[in-house]
């Protein structure tokens, strides 16, 4: 049983949430934007490249926010919750679009 009251625990949780959660959130955001914009007829590679550029900056901001925020619970909820939701939604959107053509 890990010792949750040791000072190392919150810092480990914070680093994990910021790095991994931030990554997941960014992934979800990139995926959902691509999946949502392609059906609107926007050029595939434009969306992809644009989102990669933005995504890197967004990931950086999320990571810095995660390292600084007081509200660890919110950090976990937003990054993991948001990330998973967007990723799943992106797959759903993709499927409905590809089935519709």
């Amino acid at each position: 049983m890990p010792n949750f009251s040791s000072p190392a625990w919150p810092i480990a949780s914070r680093i994990f949430a910021s790095l991994v959660g931030g990554y997941l959130f960014t992934w979800g955001l990139i995926a959902i934007t691509i999946a949502a914009l392609i059906p609107l007829g926007i050029e595939f590679h434009d969306v992809e490249m644009g989102m990669l550029m933005l995504g890197l900056l967004i990931y950086l901001s999320l990571f810095l926010w995660g390292m600084a925020t007081d509200k660890l619970i919110w950090l976990w909820l937003i990054l993991f919750g948001g990330g998973v939701t967007m990723t799943v939604l992106a797959s759903v959107l993709q499927q409905s679009f590809l089935q519709g053509i």
């Binding site: 691509i34 990669l52 550029m53 992106a90």
Partner: peptide, 28 residues
């Protein structure tokens, strides 16, 4: 640093369109 990450982003760091959205990519 930013452009270095960008060069590899689509293949290694955020390979969204080569994994999860591969079907969309192939369609395109």
């Amino acid at each position: 640093t930013f452009t270095g990450l960008l060069i590899f982003a689509s293949f290694y760091f955020f390979p969204v369109t080569h994994t999860q959205l591969e079907p969309l990519h192939d369609y395109h």
